[in-house]
Design a protein around this nucleic acid. Structure first.
Lengths: 191, 191, 191, 191
DNA sequence: GATGAATGAGTCTTCATTCAT
DNA sequence: GATGAATGAAGACTCATTCAT
C-alpha cells in the first residue's frame, strides 16, 4: 500500500524522466500522470501548476547534487584530490539519480525557472567556481572563465553517460577514470 | 525595401534566434512572425509547417558549419594543426552566425528532426570523429569515446561564447587561444 | 441531470442536425459544441477529430436504417408488399430520426468518408438493389438502373418530409400513401 | 489570345465544376483560380467575393435552365407532350452544361444564397409547379405536393446522369426514354 | 488589367487546469 | 484524498481577400 508521500515521489520521478527525455515544453501533464500511474488531477494536489512542479524538481535535484558535492569535502587536501572528490560525486549522483544531472543541464537557463531555482543553481555553480578560483590563485588551474571550464567537465561527463545509458559503451572504472583525467587536463594549469 | 527573398531570410533568422533562446517547443509561430515582422500566414508560404521550418534551419546551418570545417582542411599538417583548424572554424562560424551552433547543439537529438537532418548531423559528427580516430591511431588523442570528447570541446566553447554575448567577459585572442589549449589538453594523449 | 453518456449523445445529435442543415464543411466544431451545450474540447474526448465524428454519425444511422429496413422483412410476400415494407421503414425511420436520412443522402459521396462508411452504405444500397433486381427478374420492376430508381424513391420521400417539417403541409396517412403509390408507379413495370 | 470576357467565363466554368464536385464550402478560391488558369486576384476583378461568385453562377444557370424549359413551350399540346418538352429540356440542358443541374440541385437550399438567387429558383420551380397544378386540375397529375413530384423527377434523372458520367452505364435513347416514362408514371394520375 | 505574395481572421485541435463525484 | 471528465484559452494552420508591382 503506497503511502501518500509515495505518490508525490512517483510524480516527481516520472516528471524527471520525461523532462529529461523530451524537455519541459514537450511533456504534458497527462503524460506525467500516466507514467506515474496517478490521475491528472492528483498532480495538482501536490503542485500548484506545471511550473511549480518543474521548479520543485529542479530545486530538489540541484540541492541534492549540491549536498552530494559538499559531503565530506576534502578541504585540506590537494586541488587534485578535491577535483577527484567533485568528479566522484558527479558519478555517484548520476548513478543514484539517472536523469537528474542531464535534466539540470538542459533546463538551467529555461524561461520558466523562478528566482529560487536560479539562486540554487547559482549556489551550485559557486561551489565549483570557488574550487576553480582557489585553484587559479594557486596556479594549479588555468586562467579561464569558470563557466567554460565547468561546461567542459559536465559536457564530457554527461555525453559519456548518454552513451552508457544507450548501451553503446560499457561503464568501466577505467573509462570513468579516463574521462576524469581528460577533464582534469582541460582544467589544470600546464605551466 | 526588403526583396522577396529577404522575407524568407527574416523568418529563418528570427526562428534561429527564438529556437536557440527558448527551444523549438516553447517558440510559437506568432512569436516568429512577430519577430520577423511578417504575418503568421506568410511563414506558411515559405515552409510547409513548423517542423519543416526547423528542419530546414537545422540542415542549413549544419551544412554551413560542415563546409566551414572542411574548407582548406590541412590534411597533411600535424594533428595539432588540424585541431587548430577545426577550433578556428568553430570560432569563425559562431562569429558569423551567432546562435547557430547553440541551436544545433540543443536540438540535434530532438524528436522532430527528419531523416535528412539526422544524416547531415551524422556527417558533421563523422568529420570530427574521423579526426579523433586518426589521432587515436597515432596515439596523439586519448582513448576515450569520440562523442564525449566532442562534447567537451563544444561544451567549453559554447559556454565561453554565452559569456561573451552576455557581455560578462570580453572576447580576446588570448581567451580563445586559452580555451583552445584547454580543449586540446582534454583531448590529446598525455602518454 | 445528464448522465455521462448523454453528453456523447448530445454531441451526435447536434452534429446530425447541423450537418444535415449546413453540410459538413460549413459546420464548425464550435457550432456543434454550442448547440450541444458542451465545451469545444469535450467533443475531442469522444471523437478523435471532426472526420471521425462525421463517420461515426454516418455509420450509426446507415446501420440503424439498414436494420429498420431488414426488420421483419416479408421475404415470402409479393413484390408490392415488400415495397410497402421498405417505404414504411423509411417513414418510421425518419419519424424517429428526423434529419438522419437527409444527412445520409447529402453526404454519402463525400470525400471524407472512410472505408467502413462506404461499405456500410454499399450494404444499404445492396438491400434496395437486391429488391429491385429480383423485381426486374420477375418483370415486376422496370429495366432501369437501380441507382436511378432509388434516387426517385428517396428524392420524392425526402422532399415530402422537408415540406412536412417546414410546416408547409400536414403529414397525413393519405399523403404518405400517395407518395408511396407514386414511387411505386415510378418503379414498377407497366408492361 | 483569350478576350477579357473569356476569363470571366473560364472562372465561372471552373467554379461550376468544382462546386458541383466538392460543394461550395470545400472549394477554395485558389482551386478555382488554378483550374481556370488565372491568378487568384483576378477572380476578384470579376466577382466581389466568393458568395457573389456562387450566386452569380447559381442565378446564371437557373436562368439558363428556365429559358431552356420555356423555349418553344407547347402550351396548347397535351399534358404528356408538355411533360416530354420539360424532360427533353432537362436532357438537352445537362448535355450542354454538364454539371449545372447537379450544382443547382445540391446548392438550392444553401445558407449563402441571396434574395435574387432564391427568387430565380422559385421562378424555376413555379414553372414546374404551374405545369403540375394545371395537370392536377385536369386530373391528369396526382394530387401530391409539387415539390415532392419535382424531386422525384430530378432525383431520378440526375442519378442517371451521374452513372453515365461515371461511365457505369451508356447514355442511350431508350434509357432516357425509360427514365422519362418512369418519371411520368410517378407523376401522372392513374385514376 | 492581371498577378500572386502577403495578411490575419477564423478553423481545428491540444492541453493545463478545475471540480463534481 | 483521488480521480478523470469537462473546459476554454492558446497554438498550428488555412484561406478569403487585398494590394503593390
Amino acid at each position: 500500500m503506497p503511502t501518500t508521500e509515495s505518490k508525490r515521489e512517483d510524480i516527481l520521478h516520472s516528471a524527471l524522466n520525461l523532462f529529461a527525455e523530451r524537455g519541459f515544453d514537450a511533456t504534458t501533464i497527462p503524460m506525467i500522470a500516466n507514467d506515474a500511474k496517478v490521475g491528472a488531477g492528483t498532480i495538482y494536489r501536490y503542485f500548484e501548476n506545471k511550473e511549480v512542479l518543474v521548479n520543485t524538481l529542479f530545486q530538489h535535484y540541484v540541492q541534492l547534487f549540491t549536498d552530494t558535492l559538499l559531503e565530506d569535502y576534502p578541504l585540506d587536501h590537494s586541488i587534485r584530490d578535491q577535483f577527484h572528490h567533485l568528479f566522484e560525486g558527479m558519478v555517484r549522483f548520476t548513478h543514484e539519480h539517472e536523469h537528474a544531472l542531464y535534466f539540470i543541464k538542459t533546463h538551467n537557463a529555461a524561461y520558466f525557472l523562478d528566482e529560487t531555482s536560479r539562486e540554487r543553481f547559482e549556489k551550485l555553480l559557486s561551489i565549483l567556481r570557488d574550487f576553480l578560483d582557489k585553484g587559479k590563485e594557486e596556479h594549479k588551474i588555468r586562467e579561464l572563465p569558470s563557466k567554460a571550464l565547468i561546461a567542459i567537465i559536465f559536457g564530457g561527463f554527461l555525453e559519456l553517460y548518454k552513451l552508457i545509458r544507450a548501451g553503446e559503451i560499457e561503464a568501466s572504472e577505467e573509462l570513468l577514470a579516463g574521462v576524469e583525467e581528460s577533464c582534469w587536463d582541460a582544467v589544470r594549469s600546464h605551466e
